[in-house]
Amino acid sequence: MFEIPDDRKYLESHEWTTTDGDTVKIGISDFAQDELGDVVFVELPDEGDEITAGDEFGVVESIKAVSDLYAPISGTVVAVNEDLFDAPELVNEDPYGDGWMLELEPSSSDEFDDLLSPEEYREQTE
């Protein structure tokens, strides 16, 4: 019932990641945005920050809940979706598109293999 695109991989904590070869993009899943409800605030690292797979890299807030964001992949932040600061509702409206959060230059390519496949993630959310 929730959209889980096949072109990316997932974390148990509901982050998604997709790669074009050089960099990876990170966001949260349709399921996650629905659980949170209307997103009112997103806190993200700065460009140039190093983040480590499994560690918290930011926070997403709704009215009644706060959720930490966990990094699926280690790497250097090369872009931050600044649109979210003025329009956090993009996370709700288009979690896999305009609601993306970070773009990373990964420090290792192996970590991608440890993530959940769309099928595995779908099982988890059912």
């Binding site: 605030f41 807030e61 709704s62 009215i63 009644k64 809940a65 706060v66």
Partner: peptide, 12 residues
């Protein structure tokens, strides 16, 4: 902005 407060964020 109640997510700052103890009834939602508890020990954080």
């Amino acid at each position: 902005l109640q997510t700052r407060e103890q009834h939602i964020r508890k020990e954080r």
